[in-house]
Amino acid sequence: MARARIPERSRWRIVAGWLVGTVVVLALFPPFHIRPLSAVGVAQKASAGVNVPGFAERFWDEKLVSPAVPGSEAAAVVAALVQDPALAAGKYGRRAGVGGKTFFLVSGAGRVASIDQTGVWIDVGGAQTPRVLLLTGPVFGNALRDVTGLLNLSDDSSADSNSLSRQLNHLSETRAQAALQGARVGASIAFRAAGEIDDASQAVPVLRLAPIRVEVRP
């Protein structure tokens, strides 16, 4: 049986009609949605714009120097370290992560026992050998950043956290070490400082401290 032939023009109209209809249906009822991942409840955090030097200065002034944040008595810490470093770390120190160094925030007074190129050795009483060294050269490490436990760094990038350590070390060198320049052997000295002991080291512990506040009296 012969089928009725559809004219060429009508055929194209039917195809165009189907196409338009398909586009309209897909537009009204899309089979999938493209959404940025930030729109599904998660967004990449931008770490740019953190004012690390300003934050370091505020932290220095409001926390590290402040007597409201108590430090341990230097003589007690030294005595405990000489007896049992692990116990001393547990009693007076603080750790920032898993393993590694223990940080100490100490205050104390004593006499300048000696001075060398690394710093000023203080006799805080009790121990036979001075085991407290206030650094006068470059300050390295994270003691000033991590010793109080008041900073929650877990939301910052590691680069910002490291930069904060550098800034705080710089403040120790520029603000606190200046007072040590006038120190002479035998002078009385009062100080507040932060330092670290490495538990992987088996050497006799010496408190190598980054000064925070120093008063020297001849």
Binding site: G97, V98, G99, G100, K101, S154, D155, S158, D198
Partner: peptide
């Protein structure tokens, strides 16, 4: 914790 540092030894 968002980040946990693990100590490194020399």
């Amino acid at each position: 914790p968002a980040r946990v540092p693990i100590a490194v030894d020399l």
